[in-house]
Protein backbone atom coordinates (compact mmCIF):
# COMPACT_ATOMS: atom_id res chain seq x y z
CA UNK A 1 0.00 0.00 0.00
CA UNK A 2 1.52 3.34 -0.99
CA UNK A 3 2.06 6.01 1.59
CA UNK A 4 0.19 9.20 0.68
CA UNK A 5 3.15 11.31 1.75
CA UNK A 6 5.10 9.97 -1.17
CA UNK A 7 2.78 11.74 -3.52
CA UNK A 8 1.62 14.38 -1.11
CA UNK A 9 4.04 17.08 -2.15
CA UNK A 10 1.28 19.19 -3.55
CA UNK A 11 -1.18 18.74 -0.74
CA UNK A 12 -2.29 21.94 0.90
CA UNK A 13 -4.48 20.85 3.75
CA UNK A 14 -3.60 22.21 7.13
CA UNK A 15 -3.33 18.79 8.65
CA UNK A 16 -0.74 17.71 6.19
CA UNK A 17 1.22 20.93 6.38
CA UNK A 18 1.59 20.54 10.08
CA UNK A 19 2.42 16.88 9.82
CA UNK A 20 6.09 16.05 9.98
CA UNK A 21 7.51 14.40 6.86
CA UNK A 22 7.91 11.22 8.84
CA UNK A 23 4.36 11.42 10.15
CA UNK A 24 2.55 8.14 10.39
CA UNK A 25 -0.76 6.84 9.18
CA UNK A 26 -2.55 8.33 12.15
CA UNK A 27 -2.12 11.83 10.82
CA UNK A 28 -2.93 10.72 7.30
CA UNK A 29 -6.26 9.38 8.41
CA UNK A 30 -7.20 12.77 9.68
CA UNK A 31 -6.15 14.48 6.49
CA UNK A 32 -8.55 15.64 3.88
CA UNK A 33 -8.44 15.85 0.16
CA UNK A 34 -10.20 18.82 -1.32
CA UNK A 35 -11.59 18.42 -4.81
CA UNK A 36 -13.61 20.86 -6.84
CA UNK A 37 -15.71 18.63 -9.03
CA UNK A 38 -18.15 20.11 -11.51
CA UNK A 39 -18.28 23.32 -9.49
CA UNK A 40 -18.92 21.56 -6.20
CA UNK A 41 -16.49 21.39 -3.31
CA UNK A 42 -15.73 17.98 -1.80
CA UNK A 43 -13.64 17.53 1.32
CA UNK A 44 -12.83 13.86 1.39
CA UNK A 45 -11.22 12.04 4.27
CA UNK A 46 -8.26 9.82 3.63
CA UNK A 47 -8.34 6.48 5.33
CA UNK A 48 -9.31 2.84 5.18
CA UNK A 49 -12.99 3.07 6.08
CA UNK A 50 -15.57 2.44 3.38
CA UNK A 51 -16.55 6.10 3.09
CA UNK A 52 -12.95 7.29 3.00
CA UNK A 53 -10.42 7.68 0.23
CA UNK A 54 -7.80 4.98 0.36
CA UNK A 55 -4.34 6.12 -0.70
CA UNK A 56 -4.58 3.47 -3.43
CA UNK A 57 -7.77 4.90 -4.93
CA UNK A 58 -7.52 6.36 -8.38
CA UNK A 59 -9.32 9.54 -9.28
CA UNK A 60 -11.55 7.44 -11.54
CA UNK A 61 -12.46 5.23 -8.61
CA UNK A 62 -13.22 8.20 -6.37
CA UNK A 63 -15.35 9.90 -9.01
CA UNK A 64 -17.31 6.75 -9.71
CA UNK A 65 -17.53 4.99 -6.38
CA UNK A 66 -17.31 7.79 -3.80
CA UNK A 67 -18.95 10.67 -5.64
CA UNK A 68 -21.30 8.54 -7.75
CA UNK A 69 -20.20 10.19 -10.99
CA UNK A 70 -20.40 7.07 -13.12
CA UNK A 71 -20.42 9.00 -16.39
CA UNK A 72 -16.64 8.66 -16.31
CA UNK A 73 -16.05 5.15 -17.63
CA UNK A 74 -13.41 2.64 -16.72
CA UNK A 75 -12.19 0.18 -19.28
CA UNK A 76 -8.47 -0.69 -19.43
CA UNK A 77 -7.66 0.93 -16.07
CA UNK A 78 -4.06 1.39 -17.22
CA UNK A 79 -4.04 4.56 -19.28
CA UNK A 80 -4.42 2.98 -22.71
CA UNK A 81 -7.98 3.61 -23.81
CA UNK A 82 -9.05 7.13 -22.81
CA UNK A 83 -12.49 6.06 -21.54
CA UNK A 84 -11.83 7.70 -18.15
CA UNK A 85 -10.74 11.08 -19.55
CA UNK A 86 -11.73 14.08 -17.40
CA UNK A 87 -10.46 17.63 -17.27
CA UNK A 88 -8.16 18.66 -14.46
CA UNK A 89 -7.54 22.39 -14.30
CA UNK A 90 -8.71 22.55 -17.90
CA UNK A 91 -6.49 19.82 -19.28
CA UNK A 92 -7.43 16.29 -20.29
CA UNK A 93 -6.14 13.67 -17.88
CA UNK A 94 -6.66 9.95 -17.55
CA UNK A 95 -8.41 9.60 -14.23
CA UNK A 96 -7.39 5.94 -13.95
CA UNK A 97 -3.73 6.97 -13.87
CA UNK A 98 -3.99 9.50 -11.04
CA UNK A 99 -4.25 8.73 -7.37
CA UNK A 100 -6.92 10.80 -5.70
CA UNK A 101 -4.46 11.83 -2.98
CA UNK A 102 -2.41 13.49 -5.73
CA UNK A 103 -5.33 15.64 -6.75
CA UNK A 104 -5.76 17.80 -3.68
CA UNK A 105 -6.96 21.28 -4.54
CA UNK A 106 -7.57 20.42 -8.16
CA UNK A 107 -10.54 21.45 -10.23
CA UNK A 108 -12.08 18.53 -12.02
CA UNK A 109 -14.66 18.60 -14.77
CA UNK A 110 -16.45 15.38 -15.67
CA UNK A 111 -19.05 14.64 -18.31
CA UNK A 112 -21.78 15.30 -15.74
CA UNK A 113 -20.54 18.85 -15.28
CA UNK A 114 -20.40 19.82 -18.91
CA UNK A 115 -23.91 21.20 -19.11
CA UNK A 116 -24.41 24.79 -18.18
CA UNK A 117 -24.99 24.52 -14.41
CA UNK A 118 -27.53 27.34 -14.38
CA UNK A 119 -29.57 26.75 -17.49
CA UNK A 120 -28.95 23.02 -17.90
CA UNK A 121 -28.16 23.71 -21.52
CA UNK A 122 -25.92 21.16 -23.16
CA UNK A 123 -22.38 22.01 -24.13
CA UNK A 124 -22.11 22.59 -27.89
CA UNK A 125 -19.94 19.47 -28.12
CA UNK A 126 -22.70 17.37 -26.57
CA UNK A 127 -25.25 18.88 -28.94
CA UNK A 128 -23.06 18.19 -31.92
CA UNK A 129 -22.45 14.59 -30.85
CA UNK A 130 -26.23 14.07 -30.67
CA UNK A 131 -26.80 15.81 -33.97
CA UNK A 132 -24.20 13.67 -35.76
CA UNK A 133 -24.92 10.38 -33.95
CA UNK A 134 -21.24 10.49 -33.04
CA UNK A 135 -21.44 7.26 -31.02
CA UNK A 136 -22.65 3.72 -31.31
CA UNK A 137 -22.59 1.84 -28.01
CA UNK A 138 -21.72 5.09 -26.24
CA UNK A 139 -19.28 3.65 -23.74
CA UNK A 140 -16.31 5.63 -25.04
CA UNK A 141 -18.39 8.77 -25.58
CA UNK A 142 -17.84 10.57 -22.25
CA UNK A 143 -14.09 10.18 -22.73
CA UNK A 144 -14.31 11.32 -26.35
CA UNK A 145 -16.32 14.37 -25.39
CA UNK A 146 -13.96 15.33 -22.58
CA UNK A 147 -10.94 14.96 -24.87
CA UNK A 148 -12.73 17.16 -27.38
CA UNK A 149 -13.48 19.71 -24.67
CA UNK A 150 -9.80 19.89 -23.68
CA UNK A 151 -8.80 20.17 -27.32
CA UNK A 152 -11.18 23.02 -28.04
CA UNK A 153 -10.16 24.88 -24.89
CA UNK A 154 -6.61 24.81 -26.18
CA UNK A 155 -7.33 25.19 -29.88
CA UNK A 156 -10.75 26.72 -30.54
CA UNK A 157 -10.18 26.22 -34.28
CA UNK A 158 -8.11 23.09 -34.55
CA UNK A 159 -6.87 21.69 -37.82
CA UNK A 160 -8.01 18.22 -38.86
CA UNK A 161 -4.65 16.87 -37.74
CA UNK A 162 -4.94 18.57 -34.36
CA UNK A 163 -8.37 17.02 -33.87
CA UNK A 164 -7.09 13.57 -34.74
CA UNK A 165 -4.06 14.01 -32.52
CA UNK A 166 -6.24 15.28 -29.69
CA UNK A 167 -8.46 12.20 -29.86
CA UNK A 168 -5.77 9.67 -30.71
CA UNK A 169 -5.77 8.31 -27.17
CA UNK A 170 -9.46 7.46 -27.23
CA UNK A 171 -10.27 3.87 -28.12
CA UNK A 172 -13.53 3.20 -29.93
CA UNK A 173 -14.27 -0.28 -31.11
CA UNK A 174 -17.55 0.41 -32.88
CA UNK A 175 -15.65 2.81 -35.19
CA UNK A 176 -17.58 5.98 -34.49
CA UNK A 177 -14.49 7.98 -35.38
CA UNK A 178 -15.88 9.30 -38.64
CA UNK A 179 -19.02 10.69 -37.06
CA UNK A 180 -17.01 12.12 -34.16
CA UNK A 181 -14.85 13.98 -36.65
CA UNK A 182 -17.96 15.30 -38.38
CA UNK A 183 -19.38 16.44 -35.06
CA UNK A 184 -16.20 18.34 -34.23
CA UNK A 185 -15.86 19.82 -37.71
CA UNK A 186 -19.39 21.14 -37.43
CA UNK A 187 -18.33 23.00 -34.28
CA UNK A 188 -15.06 24.38 -35.52
CA UNK A 189 -15.94 25.10 -39.09
CA UNK A 190 -13.01 23.01 -40.30
CA UNK A 191 -13.82 21.51 -43.66
CA UNK A 192 -13.46 17.77 -43.78
CA UNK A 193 -11.21 15.90 -46.15
CA UNK A 194 -13.02 13.31 -48.13
Amino acid sequence: MSNPYHCGYNLHSKTLHTASPGGGLKKTRQSKIRLHVNGKLHDLEVGDKPHQIKPSHTLAHTLRETLGLTGTKLSCDEGACGACTVLMDGKAVLSCMLLTVECHGKTILTIEGLRNPETGELDPIQKSFIEHTAFQCGFCTPGMIMSTKALLLKHPHPSEEQVKEGLSGNFCRCISHYHVLEAIRALTGEKGHS
Binding site: T70, E112, L122, F129, I130, T133, F135, G138, T141, I145
Partner: peptide, 11 residues
Protein backbone atom coordinates in the same frame (compact mmCIF):
# COMPACT_ATOMS: atom_id res chain seq x y z
CA UNK B 1 -28.51 10.15 -27.14
CA UNK B 2 -28.99 12.56 -24.24
CA UNK B 3 -28.13 9.87 -21.68
CA UNK B 4 -25.02 8.93 -23.61
CA UNK B 5 -23.59 12.42 -24.05
CA UNK B 6 -24.30 13.47 -20.47
CA UNK B 7 -22.94 10.34 -18.81
CA UNK B 8 -26.35 9.40 -17.49
CA UNK B 9 -26.50 6.09 -19.38
CA UNK B 10 -26.14 3.34 -16.79
CA UNK B 11 -23.95 0.53 -17.99
Amino acid sequence: ALDIVTGKAKF
